[in-house]
Structures are given as structure tokens and as C-alpha cells.
Amino acid sequence: MPYDLGPAAIAWMVVATFVAGFVRGYSGFGFSAMVIAASSLVTNPLNFVFVVVLLEAVMSLQAAKGAGPDVDWRRVGWLMAGAAIGLPLGLLILTGVSEDTARAVVSAYVLFMCGVLLAGWRLRSEVKGSPNGIAGLISGLANAPGMGGLPVAAFFAAQPMPAAVFRATLIAYFPLLDVYSAPLYWLAGMVSWDAFWASVWLLPITLLANWLGGRHFFGTDPQDFRRFAIVLLAGLAVLGLGKALI
């Protein structure tokens, strides 16, 4: 089994990945953070970073059809410029700490981002230019544990952006971030055959869950479901933080 996970741990990751895929399909966010937070309860969370990058890349390709005309490429350029600086710094910090410290850092970050998302803060106008580079820097730092999407999604959600531009710009940014991240993950020793095998057996589960979520099988209001997903993610982070501290 990948990463020497036992049957119970494998079952846990299958369920967690299915739930995370459904959440992403329904609400459009949270897959990587949920899988990484869940993995921190059964292994070093850094083990699953490259796994979620591969799975996210496939889901991004699924969602890319027709998104091109709405992409704000200037924003994407600023985000990538910031991420190019932030990711190496984040990897340098995170790969130099113990497993429990990495688990605590990941859990604390997820809890903080859940608070930001639940607060629902808003800006009066769209943010153009270099501030997007700062968002990219934070995203790059956060992508060291594979969760660079949360700060950008929160940053975009706070602005009065057209929904089509919001979605298309994220769809364009994430694959570029993944392409840039992959060799740095390899240099940091985070790419292994275990990561590829874990991706292979989790991919069908991810695609099925993402499809089901996209079909809106539940009659829940999307905003209510999003809050539920954030609370669920916060719960996983609390468990991970508790495990690290204990």
C-alpha cells in the first residue's frame, strides 16, 4: 500500500477523498485542503501534496472547456509572479521541520483560512495590478503543503468580480501553479512512486465524486453547503492540530 498505510487508513483516505471531491464539485473549492487535512491524521501530510496536485490537475482539465475567453491573464501573471517567490520559500521552511510540526502548521493554516472564508469579508471594488502579486506570494507559500488555492479563492471572493471571470481565472492559474510546483516538489523529495500509486487508485473516486457534486444531488442551498464544507474542513484541522500537539 502507498506510504505503508494500513487498511483502516486506506479506507479513511478513500472516504475523505470522495467527500472532498463531492465538495469541490458542488461548491468549487476545498479539495486539496480537505484531503491534506484528512491525510494528516494517518500519515505525514506532505506525503499527499503531490497526490492532490495530480488529482487537481485532472479536475482542472475537466473544467477548462469554454473558460478561455473569460480569463483575466493580467491577474494570472501577477499571481504567478508572486507564487514564483513564495513557493520555494514555503518549501524551504516546511520540509525542514518534523512531521508533527508540519502537521501543526498545515492544521493551523487551514483553521485560519476557514475563519477567513466564514467571515465573508468584502471589498468595494476589484483589486488590480500588484496586489494580486501579493496574493500570489501568499498562495505560493501556502502551496508548499499543496493548498495554494484557498487564499486566492478567498481573495477573489471578496471582490465584486463577475462569476465567469472568477472561475475562469482560477481555472487558468491552478494548472500553471501546478506545472511550476511539480519540479520543486521533486527537488524537495516530495515526489515518489507512492504518490503516483495513490493518485492512480484515488483518481476514479475523485472523478466520480466531483461529477456527483457537480450534478447537485443534494437539494441544499449552495451557500449553506459551502458553510457546512468549511465547518467540516475546520473540524479536520482541529483533529490534526490535536494529534500534532498530543
Rank of each mutant, 00 (worst) to 15 (best):
F196I: 15
A83D: 09
A154M: 12
F50Q: 10
Q62W: 12
G129Y: 03
G214Y: 02
Q223G: 11
G30P: 03
M161G: 04
Y3C: 02
S192T: 15
S139M: 09
A244L: 06
V106K: 11
F225C: 05
S40K: 02
V110F: 00
I85P: 04
N47M: 05
I93V: 15
I10G: 02
L245Y: 09
A182Q: 09
G140Q: 10
V231H: 00
W73R: 14
A64G: 03
M80D: 04
A182L: 11
K128M: 02
N132R: 03
R74S: 11
W211M: 09
L118A: 12
G240S: 09
L5D: 01
L137E: 10
A153G: 07
F48I: 06
G68V: 00
L91Y: 07
D178W: 10
A9Q: 11
L91W: 07
A83F: 09
G240W: 04
A154G: 06
F22C: 01
L54T: 06
V165C: 11
P222I: 13
F48W: 14
S139D: 11
I134N: 08
L241Y: 11
D221S: 14
F196W: 14
F218M: 12
T101S: 13
A182F: 06
L41G: 02
D70K: 13
L233T: 13
